[in-house]
Design a protein around this nucleic acid. Structure first.
Length: 343
DNA sequence: TTGGTAATCGTACTTACCTCA
DNA sequence: TCTGAGGTAAGTACGATTACC
């Protein structure tokens, strides 16, 4: 069994506890969560309130549920640099925002990276709205879904992207039984990433709008978000594992230090007869949970005889030892209380 | 008011395909 | 050219929640 405590020389190994006042005891020490990537939910909720669609109300409740479980410590694992809310991306347009639904003229700055919303065909979305039910989940349905007319101006398009689009166009013909692996273009991925920063989950309206804008099927957008959440969670788990590993190392170090200190105190106790006058303090371990409890008993000796010829040095050492012992007892007190009462 | 049921959406896990070293 | 590892889109199973009857 190992016991780690924070004493005077290591004052705050659990500073994260101070940041989590609302956490219950069972949550103590495990601060997981996502950072600013989810901060846009409140805006979404504000917007969905207006529609008051029943399904959106359900989603709203779900998101509140998710939010309520969001841990306080925020770690932003997203690979993109965060975009300030006050400065939305100038070229990416999020379809669920009302003004984004209005067709915008193509940027004239020649950057060639904007998404030409106007030129997206409504084929995919219309077909999707028609078959968003059973057909969406059918295997091998991705092949026929790509009328890849993804209208990204040539700037950000790589050769591979062009190849992919060509392949997709040709895939429409075969409609074979093999599950063809599609690959989202960089622009599509980037756009989805930006969307994910705003909302880690999508309501149907957002999904449809996003699918329309990217010329994907809503099912594909939905799957992408599912996988994206899974990736985020996986990365978060890795971060948490690292953190716990470091915690473990710190506690082990602390434990060694305490063991050493305990040995020194015991040595001092045996070498100084005067020390025996102090109340005998023992550390006992609860056999069930292996927590340490302290018990203090008085020895009953007066101690008047041995203490008279102590040197000043011994007195100082004794004073230090007493103070240290008191610290150790106090540190153990919190853990020990219920067990002492039980015993 | 309560219980059963269907619909919907989420997560977890898995599979299959693709890319790249 | 072959191959194995890693990434990722998509499929599947299952649970939670809600509305409806």
């Amino acid at each position: 069994m190992e016991l780690a405590l924070s004493l005077g020389d290591t004052p705050k190994p659990f500073t994260f506890l101070d940041k989590t006042p609302k956490m219950s005891s069972k949550d103590v020490g495990f601060c997981m969560g996502l950072g600013s990537a989810f901060s846009g939910r409140s805006d979404e909720k504000r917007e969905t309130r207006e529609g008051e669609d029943r399904r959106e109300v359900i989603r709203d409740a779900r998101e509140r549920r998710l939010l309520s479980s969001d841990p306080p410590v925020q770690l932003d694992l997203l690979p993109f640099s965060p975009v300030p809310r006050s400065q939305p991306p100038t070229q990416l347009r999020f379809p669920w925002l009302a003004d984004n639904l209005v067709p915008e003229p193509a940027p004239s700055d020649g950057t060639g990276k904007g998404l030409d919303v106007n030129r997206f065909p409504a084929v995919a979305i219309a077909a999707e709205e028609a078959d968003d039910g059973t057909a969406l989940s059918s295997p091998n349905s991705t092949v026929s879904s790509f009328q890849m007319d993804f209208c990204v101006r040539n700037g950000g398009r790589t050769k591979r992207d062009l190849e992919v689009e060509t392949e997709r166009a040709s895939d429409d013909d075969e409609n074979g039984s093999t599950r063809k692996k599609l690959r989202l273009t960089k622009e599509q991925s980037a756009f989805l990433e930006e969307s994910f920063k705003e909302h880690s989950t999508l309501n149907p309206k957002q999904k449809l709008a996003l699918a329309k804008q990217l010329n994907l099927r809503p099912r594909q957008v939905e799957v992408w978000f599912q996988n994206r959440r899974a990736r985020t969670k996986l990365k978060q788990t890795e971060v948490d594992c690292e953190y716990l590993k470091r915690c473990c190392e710190t506690l082990t170090q602390e434990n060694r230090k305490l063991q050493k200190e305990l040995q020194e105190l015991r040595a001092l106790k045996t070498s100084q007869p005067f020390y025996m006058q102090l109340p005998a303090t023992t550390l006992t371990m609860c056999p069930s949970c292996e927590r340490v409890a302290t018990t203090t008993t008085t020895t009953g000796s007066s101690g008047a005889t041995a203490g008279n010829n102590n040197s000043t040095t011994n007195k100082a050492a004794l004073s230090l030892a007493k103070g240290r012992l008191y610290q150790v007892e106090q540190a153990h007190m919190h853990q020990a209380q219920p067990h002492q009462a039980a015993s």
